[in-house]
Amino acid sequence: MSENAGRLGRRLSRILLLLPYAIQHPGTTAGELSRKFQIPKNELINDLNLVFLCGLPGYGPGDLIDVEFQEDRIYIRMADYFSAPLRLTPGEALALYAGGQAIAELPAMEEADSLRRALVKLGKALGADLGRDEAAAIKVRLDNSPERHLQVLQRGLSEHKQVEIEYLSSSRTEATTRNIEPWGLVATLGRWYVVGLDHLSGEERMFRVDRIKTSRLTDAPAEPPAEFDAERYKGAFIGREDQTVVTIEISPQAARWFEDYYPVRAARDLPDGWREVELLSSGDRWGATLALRLGDQVRNVQPASVLEAARGFAEAIARRYN
């Protein structure tokens, strides 16, 4: 769809939504419509003036949509066929349904029951009568993230308290204890992460909930930022300045799935079918573990410090097998 067509589609969708509202609420005002549908008043008036020219074949006085302004009040008649909104598009339904299923898994969510009831109704509206289970048509499965940690983290979030966690960071073999100020919970790459200020490093960090060994709510206050923009943490990635740029070359086989699972920042195909990918790693350890997991499907690991770390890990693991 061209950009222009996209704009036209959005405008038309908006008109097909505000008409039912105005028809059902005769005497509504431009101010109310503008607030409710979050569009500037002048655009709203343009929309209504446009509707005024449309209607049914014949296009006489009895066929055209009748828009009447009485001072500030708006009356729309002769458009009964537009008196109810258009059903959800598949994209709208999927966004609501999948998002709802994901957060319905949070254990300490007060609204969980309401949400589940709403999703069942939404499923019925979609016609998803797949036998006994309306929910079978779309299913969001997150890896089992320990509920007891999610619960503690949610309390920390709602009560603005620090949480003490024992955490196994990637490629460490022992969990380290730290206090974090939780800012938010983000489900990405199929798992829950907690985002927050890590007192151990003094930095903003993202922690995988399944790698938390223990969690405890403390009395120490937390000061989360006023706005939490979860969108920043898609792909389990925090755009900090001080990260290591890791470049590796991956085999044609690995290239087929790699970018579905790892936040690749840049990539290019090499003449022999391998692919060079660039990722960000906080420190060398994450990149080293990633390279090591790929085994002979990876070559040319850069920078040298990451390769060195990977060799160190390999030696340590191999000792158990010799």
């Binding site: 549908f37 959800l88 709208e92 949400l115 109704k121 898609k234």
Partner: peptide
Amino acid sequence: ELAALRLAADAVLGVGDEATAGLRK
């Protein structure tokens, strides 16, 4: 139930605009 769907629309990443448009309907 609508309030709960509002939470879902705000939480879903990448397609928040579509979720909000659906919620309006």
